[in-house]
């Protein structure tokens, strides 16, 4: 697998660390309640097809990335900086 880092360009998978679903970026407010935190920590959609995921370019530029990956084909549809994805969501 190859991942195109927005900063470094096309790089080998071994430079990256997979963190989990991009949902992790959206932590509920401290007073959101147990249900919201249970959902945040444990509940994942895990659909076949496109998933939004957090990747860390650990052995590269050390940027956190949000990637859209098709888990049936391992094709990356898009990769963007997590910092920009977060800014865009606000």
């Amino acid at each position: 697998m190859r991942i195109t880092c927005p900063i470094c360009g096309d790089r080998d998978l071994r430079e990256f660390h997979y963190r989990g679903a991009a949902k992790l970026m959206h932590r509920p407010a401290p007073d959101a309640g147990d249900e919201a935190f249970y959902d945040y920590v444990h509940i994942r959609e895990n659909p076949p097809g496109l998933n939004r995921e957090l990747w860390f370019h650990e052995l590269g530029c050390r940027a956190w990335l949000v990637a859209e990956r098709d888990v049936t084909s391992h094709e990356f549809k898009s990769v963007e900086l997590a910092a920009e994805a977060k800014r865009g969501a606000k």
């Binding site: 470094c8 790089r11 080998d12 071994r14 430079e15 052995l59 590269g60 530029c61 050390r62």
Partner: peptide, 8 residues
């Protein structure tokens, strides 16, 4: 020449 990369 002059290119640099963080890599493994």
């Amino acid at each position: 020449r002059g290119d640099t990369a963080r890599t493994e």
